[in-house]
Design a protein around this nucleic acid. Structure first.
Length: 487
RNA sequence: GGCGACGUACCCAAGUGGCAAGGGAGAGGUCUGCAAAACCUCGAUUCAGCGGUUCGAAUCCGCUCGUCGCCUCCA
């Protein structure tokens, strides 16, 4: 396997510290608001990495944190007139609601910053003792800052020189810092803010220190993969490296992996620009699996331009897959015992080849876009095979095998896992179709009577009526199926 | 200003040295009571532009143009 390492700027062979075991830490979210589609991308991408590593029989321990104490949470609480921890708790619940819908599995450990204050204080204390950090009095309490110039490799992840950072000088001018680049490990508590007791008086942790403390606690001093959105490279991950490596003297992470942004009109989606769509906004109009397919159809490091057109394309693609699964299922329950078998060699060959193609794509830095491309080739091969009207038990066994292979690959991406009927029933909701499954089935039955009497005008009228409401009918030998019209 | 990424068909998107995957949209055909779905066929002599390296380049190097990101909280 190869993975792209932000540290080296290249794809590298993936060799974990301990054979067959992978520790992975992905930075989660600060829980002060609803998540947007960009957060969804990051969560989906790391979810798929973990699923694939497990598929490859790695013993994976996946940690994804919640930042549940921070300036933005406090500000939000003040705006809402609620307690800071109530805000955090509320948005953790909302996070789970969104991510569950998107089919993102829970991490093995989901630590919260506020549950690791003690660990953070220990790291900060050690850093002060080593001279890598210093306390600065702020009223009766003190803040603690990391002294960046004490860490010679500062900037190695983001490829920034300390002098260039200083030249930029967009950093806060803060008299208490010895160097403008220094960052807070511990913040002295201000009036009305939440606080914890510490060797420096009442205060609360800085942002970066939580990941150092929690990653080390749950995954050890050197972790295999550390990831998050590309916007975390600087300063967050750079600061984590400085703290962690100054603390342990060991490399903090072997592979740094960062996902690209979702853009709107080519600009990064962000709260400050106001150009974001929340996950729930999107899920109100599109099936969650459509969003997953949309995200995974591009390589995780590339930017994705968000648009409704793209989501609709993804919806059409997904519908194609479910249509094929439906055909396969029809075939499996049909009576094909008689007649001679058709030529199946070509399809068998593809079936044998497919897993290799899929894994080759995923082994190459989790190339889900290519892997999905192979899955669509697979779909076409299945359709071709079924179009040839195969007969016999061997053909059925092959179709069953195909379904299984497809389901296994789909499981890695957590795609294509529903029944075709469920896909269509769920579309009734996301497309706001004013018909229930039951009503549709009744209409089909009425039309079937008309068809039996060769009353084509009546049959066509029913079909037209349903189509106007967004339902397409497909007449087959065994009966008539319905599906939701995509467009 | 510093650092970095990207520019592939109508849209999206793989491909990083050996005849340009895949999806969506479109055109024609087969099948069908008519449809739908599916399948078949068609669609970039070409990969932003210009030079260079090479037997061979979308792929490597250089320059130009364009777009974006990070340098401040950010997935």
């Amino acid at each position: 396997m190869k993975v792209f390492n932000t540290m080296s700027g290249r794809k590298e062979d993936f060799v974990p510290f301990v054979k067959n075991r992978v520790g992975i830490y992905a930075c989660g979210v600060t829980v002060y608001d609803y998540c947007h589609i960009g957060h969804a991308r990051s969560a989906i991408v790391f979810d798929v990495m973990v699923r694939y590593l497990r598929h490859k029989s790695f013993d994976v321990k996946y940690v994804r944190n919640f930042t549940d104490i921070d300036d933005k949470i406090i500000r939000r609480a003040n705006e809402e007139g609620s307690a800071w921890d109530a805000v955090a708790s509320k948005y953790i619940d909302e996070y789970y609601r969104d991510m569950d819908m998107l089919g993102i599995a829970r991490a093995d450990i989901e630590p919260k910053a506020t549950e690791h204050i003690h660990e953070m204080i220990n790291v900060i204390k050690a850093l002060v003792e080593k001279g890598a950090a210093y306390a600065a009095a702020e009223g009766e309490n003190s803040s603690v800052y990391f002294a960046v110039e004490k860490f010679g490799e500062y900037g190695k992840l983001s490829k920034k020189e300390q002098k260039d950072l200083l030249a930029g000088a967009r950093v806060d001018v803060d008299g208490r810092k010895k160097n403008p680049m220094d960052f807070a490990l511990w913040k002295a508590s201000k009036e009305g803010e939440p606080w914890w007791e510490s060797p420096w008086g009442k205060g609360r942790p800085g942002w970066h220190i939580e990941c150092t403390a929690m990653a080390i606690k749950h995954l050890g001093e050197s972790i295999d993969i550390h990831g998050g959105g590309a916007d975390l490279i600087f300063p967050h991950h750079e600061n984590e490296i400085a703290q962690s490596e100054a603390f342990t003297g060991k490399p903090f992470a072997k592979y740094w992996m960062h996902n690209g942004f979702i853009t709107i009109d080519k600009e990064k989606m962000s709260k400050s620009l106001g150009n974001f769509f929340t996950i729930r906004d999107i899920l109100d109009r599109y099936d969650a699996e459509v969003v997953r397919l949309f995200v995974l159809s591009s390589h995780y490091r590339n930017p994705i331009e968000f648009s409704h057109e793209q989501l609709r394309d993804a919806e059409s693609s997904l519908d194609r897959v479910y249509s094929t699964i439906a055909r396969t299922e029809d075939f499996l329950v049909s009576d094909v015992s008689s007649k001679k078998a058709v030529q199946t060699a070509e399809f068998e060959d593809f079936l044998v080849k497919f897993n290799g193609l899929f894994e080759e794509a995923m082994d190459d830095d989790f190339n889900t876009a290519l892997a999905i491309g192979h899955m669509f080739e697979f779909v076409r091969e299945i359709n071709k095979f079924l179009d040839a009207k195969p007969h016999g038990d061997a053909a059925k066994a092959l179709a069953a095998k195909a379904k299984e292979v497809m389901a296994t690959a789909g499981g890695v991406l957590n795609l294509f896992g529903r029944t075709p009927l469920q896909w269509n029933v769920d579309l009734l909701r996301s497309k706001r179709i004013e018909l229930s499954e039951q009503q549709i089935v009744q209409k089909i039955a009425a039309r079937q009577d008309a068809r039996q009497n060769k009353d084509w005008a009546m049959a066509d009228a029913v079909r037209k009526e349903l189509e106007e409401k967004g339902i397409l009918l497909e007449d087959k030998k065994e009966g008539t199926d319905w599906k939701v019209k995509i467009a």
